[in-house]
Amino acid sequence: MSKKILIIGLGSIGQRHLRNLISLGYKDICLVRRNANVLKGFSKLKVFKSIFEACKNEDFNTAIITTPTANHFKDFLDISNYNIQNIYIEKPVTHSVEESLKINEIATQFSLNVVVGYDLHFDLGLLKVKELLHENTIGKICSFQVEVGQYLPDWRPNEDYREGMSAKKTLGGGVMLDLIHEFDYTNWLFGPIKSVFGKNKQISNLEIETEDISINIIETQQGVLGTISLDYLQKELSRTCKIIGDQGTIIWNYKESKVLWMTHNNIVWQEFIFTHIERNDRFVSIIKAFMDSSFNNLDERLSTVNNSIESLKMVVCAKKSNKENKFLEL
């Protein structure tokens, strides 16, 4: 069956998905964006001002939602009215657990293929880490340290960071939702999660309404203890995960495209290096996997709505924990 695709929202990630779909050979693509001017290089594509207008004029079987997080729920509800079977929602699924549960309910009721865009599941380094853990390379997992930070004004150099989604509470911004990848892959590698203690605040001189620092302590159902540290502040990108087992250690370094591991029986660092992979390759991989998937045939690397609810619960619990100053169970 041929794919007729509607992309809703055309910010930086929407443009990336559009270019990648075209590179994969998909041509039957329409756009929904508030500014109906077609981007340079895409003059042949039809652009509509609303989902209603698009679906009134065309029949789609695939939709990709890349609007601000706070709009995801409404956009999904609008899309679900038009019998569109394949829906990709950029992460996070929403900023509300209640909304995400409703999306999951609708997706299940109507057998919709709904995927949430956690592209780090396609990072070769994290896939290698998952393989090493599956093989019990470092024995029983005891603890982990997850960390990511990058200076917000550098994220999108051609945009004013103060006006973007990250800076606005009403749009679902803040370092915890922006960098929810870290909560997601923590659950993916070590879950299920039992409890969270979080501290987060806006502490720097960035001109934003949202938190720019988030420090969290995590306990899994298996009794593993870990930390997740997020910030909008580090001028040089830092993104790492260190896992300590009772028989060794694994380190994933995203920036250096490298996984290192050492065991008690082999005290020499072994390396898995994937510097030949470009950042966009994993975005190509995830959108291709989505386009090749269906409700009953889903690539195991793809995140369902049900999967994504768990990481959202972690964020919501961490924010509530900050206010109540205590550990909270998921």
Rank of each mutant, 00 (worst) to 15 (best):
D292K: 05
F144D: 01
L126H: 01
F183P: 00
T62K: 06
G14D: 09
H17K: 06
I87V: 04
V305H: 01
E53N: 11
R239W: 15
V268F: 15
Q15G: 04
N280E: 11
I7F: 02
C55S: 12
D281P: 12
E236M: 15
F190M: 03
I251K: 10
L126F: 13
K326C: 13
N322C: 14
F183V: 03
L127P: 05
R301T: 05
H72Q: 04
F183T: 01
F295Q: 07
A167C: 07
N71L: 05
T263G: 00
V97D: 02
I213R: 05
G226T: 07
G164N: 02
D231T: 12
L21A: 02
T66Q: 09
F110L: 11
K128D: 02
A107Y: 12
I213T: 02
E207G: 01
H72W: 06
S214H: 12
I13Y: 11
K242V: 08
K194H: 10
K74T: 10
F48P: 14
N205I: 11
R239D: 08
I208V: 08
R239V: 11
T62Q: 01
K319N: 06
I180C: 02
I213G: 04
V116C: 00
Q85G: 04
V196W: 12
L328Q: 12
I286C: 07
N37W: 10
I180E: 00
E278Q: 03
Q109F: 14
S204I: 15
H72V: 03
S80D: 13
P192A: 00
E147V: 08
K326S: 12
R301W: 12
E58V: 09
G125H: 06
N113Y: 08
G223M: 12
L312G: 01
N86A: 14
D123F: 09
E99I: 14
Q150F: 15
L124M: 05
F327E: 11
E329C: 06
F190N: 00
Q234E: 06
K326E: 13
K320M: 10
N200D: 06
L298Q: 04
I267R: 08
H134E: 10
S229V: 15
L133D: 03
L302W: 10
F73T: 04
S257H: 14
L328D: 07
Y161M: 10
N57H: 15
I65R: 00
T210S: 04
L230T: 03
G198H: 00
F144W: 10
G164Q: 06
G14A: 10
V315S: 00
T220S: 09
Q234T: 08
C241N: 09
L237P: 09
N57G: 14
R279I: 14
K288H: 15
G11C: 12
G164S: 04
L31A: 02
N113P: 13
V115G: 09
T67Y: 02
A318T: 05
E182L: 13
N81H: 15
G191H: 04
N136E: 10
S166Q: 05
E58L: 07
A318Y: 08
L45D: 03
N83R: 13
D123S: 04
V316Q: 07
R19W: 07
L328A: 05
R282Y: 15
V47K: 04
N37M: 13
N57V: 14
